[in-house]
Amino acid sequence: MKNRSQKLVLEDVTCRFDELTVCDGINLSVDAGEMVCLIGASGSGKSTLLRCINLLEPIDSGHIWLDGEDISIPGLDPKPYRKRIGIVFQSFNLFPHMTVMQNICLAPTRVLNATVTETHAVAKDLLQRFGLQDKASEYPDRLSGGQQQRVAIVRALAMQPEIMLLDEITSALDPELVGEVLEVVKALKEQNMTIVLATHEMAFAREVADRVCFLDGGKILETAPPEEIFTNPREARTREFLHRLL
């Protein structure tokens, strides 16, 4: 049995949409401060797995342990756990009717019951760190994709999560904007944030990930340090996938 007291432990996680098994017996442990990259073709189950961890999708069987606590028991209120696990989506999903500042401050004030002054200070600080200080009163549609995605990251960070789930956060961006978002992720990693990242950016995964998991057909086929998986993958499917990509 795994050591369930690790930061995040997935045990035989299975998730089905009707007949389709999207995650099929996933086992994965993530240490505090570790960065795990999920790679694999579209439809391999990366996004669904992240949504399961955030309890946005109910799982059909298996367990998800957060700090040794099973958070996947059916009927459990997901809200207390969600605020500890931040997620950032491919399509940003900023609230278009709110300014950047309002986007960031909504959840802290409503969920953490922080005062407006507190959250404003936290938000300002975060925006400053990610070079967005002059965008606080802009609406999302006035920002570039890269800026929007950085705001989305800040919005998740403002909840002071223990884990960040990043779901292909650069896939919807123009190529020249990918860099600025990845810089942010790198900075998070340097601050010892626990990160699970689904990505198509192999070079980035190779550079910053502690471990890389290759998903195929809802299963983790292979887990290894990046150097190993990119230079000498064990599985034929992994090799095939990387070959097509590189």
């Binding site: 946005l56 809200k79 605020k83 931040g86 909504l106 959840a107 409503r110 969920v111 998740a156």
Partner: peptide, 21 residues
Amino acid sequence: KSQRAASESLGLTEADTMRFV
């Protein structure tokens, strides 16, 4: 529905999601 997902992923209640988002 991605707007709801974004809001709920931040830990907002359904009522707050409806009201603010």
